[in-house]
Design a protein around this nucleic acid. Structure first.
Lengths: 225, 225
DNA sequence: CGGGTTATTGAATGATATCAACTTACGTGG
DNA sequence: CCACGTAAGTTGATATCATTCAATAACCCG
């Protein structure tokens, strides 16, 4: 599974590291910056996104507690990192971190697995953006979010949405209006319940799973009724 | 930058390995199979794709000579692998390969870098599929293919297309008819020349780059003239 | 050279974006 | 603690790009 907070934090402990707090919407770094650190999310959530010339943005991932930011490093950072809500991080200076990793196969294996999981999620995102219609994408997103949350916290049927409708839209490459329409449709069909703006309760997981897998949410059919 | 054929083959040499040849369209493995090997492409090209329930497929990557297949391994293979044309591979049994990797930081670092590059390409694909229109996606695809080819072979302005229009379509999540329309449009505008079905000459790279970056190919405007 | 596959081109449909108006939620200050 | 104001979310009407279906044309291997 994802580089578990436990195992990774263990290796991380041995490196001196600083803590850092981010306010909602505050940026950790911008694309084009030189990379100075590798970060480990402790609480809250961070999104990685690419700002396009058109002014739009593509979020390529949300980082939740226990996950690393900045692993697939290149010369210059290719993405912006922004806190979704109040967020706490650990910061590791790049050079010592990589030096420590290079000499420790067990640690390196952890990083390798962490990047592998990022890759899996990236492929999953490709499938959503490329193959699924809007409803199907959102269903898959909600189920994935729940699975990740369940792995970290005690199982609750209440899924926290650290990000806004617009953030979800920028991740799935649909408009925020469409995200909203899908939420409404799912609510009307009894699949989910919305709790304020930042919470969802998944009621009918089977239907959501079916929709997520079928690549067809039946939005239009359900809408007429 | 991708795990260079040279360096990786070096590490690979030390493991006993078999060779394997694939005919065009022949499958190396199917999604759901247990993973038995890790492969290194020697010649030809292989695509990795996910077969969807709808019957459509999403190609998530093309593997060219010098690149590994099967690195981000999980319990079951999540993708199908199919040869685009005549293809030669090296095959490494999974367990010995991983055992060797686990004990060798330098080798492990190579694998880590290889997966990191897969991740970069996956993100690039997300950007294409999510942000670019059809023409822009194809332009970015052609330029990327040329860059990869140039890194391997001697620089030629003739870019080989090991894959069909349908394969490109399934990679970029557009229809093969649209791929064809874009090729025709680019040809009419003097950006490219088509050489049979499996070759392209890039004539006006600057225009292609502009189109690839602008996320707007001006297909409709150009079409009227 | 011929048959079959692959590619191109055209016309109509459809899902989602966009634009615009309205409503709800939530934090702040009175 | 309530009222207000702003930002976020919802909902509706229309436009648009790409898909789909259909037919023709080009390529290539035997």
């Amino acid at each position: 599974m994802a580089c578990g907070g436990a195992a990774c934090a263990e290796g991380a402990q041995q490196l001196g590291c600083q803590r850092r707090k981010l306010q909602p919407r505050q940026h950790l770094f911008l694309q084009g910056d030189a990379q100075s650190h590798i970060y480990l999310v402790q609480s809250g959530a961070v999104c990685l996104y690419k700002l396009m010339r058109s002014g739009r943005r593509q979020i390529v991932g949300f980082k939740l507690p226990g996950e690393f930011i900045g692993l697939g490093h290149e010369e210059r950072l290719r993405f912006c990192a922004q806190a979704m809500g109040p967020t706490e991080l650990r910061c590791f200076a790049l050079q010592p971190f990589l030096a420590a990793a290079s000499g420790d196969p067990r640690f390196l294996l952890k990083l390798y697995e962490s990047v592998s999981h990022d890759l899996s999620r990236a492929y999953e995102l490709v499938l959503s953006v490329g193959q699924r219609d809007a409803g199907s994408s959102v269903a898959a997103f909600l189920l994935g979010l729940e699975a990740r949350a369940r792995a970290q916290r005690e199982p609750t049927d209440l899924v926290a949405l650290p990000m806004s409708r617009g953030d979800i839209a920028d991740y799935l490459s649909i408009s925020f209006e469409t995200v909203s329409r899908v939420f409404t449709s799912f609510k009307k069909r009894g699949y989910i319940a919305l709790l304020g703006r930042r919470g969802v309760r998944l009621i009918d997981r089977d239907s959501l799973r079916t929709i997520a897998m079928s690549e067809d949410s039946g939005m239009r059919r359900a809408a007429v009724s």
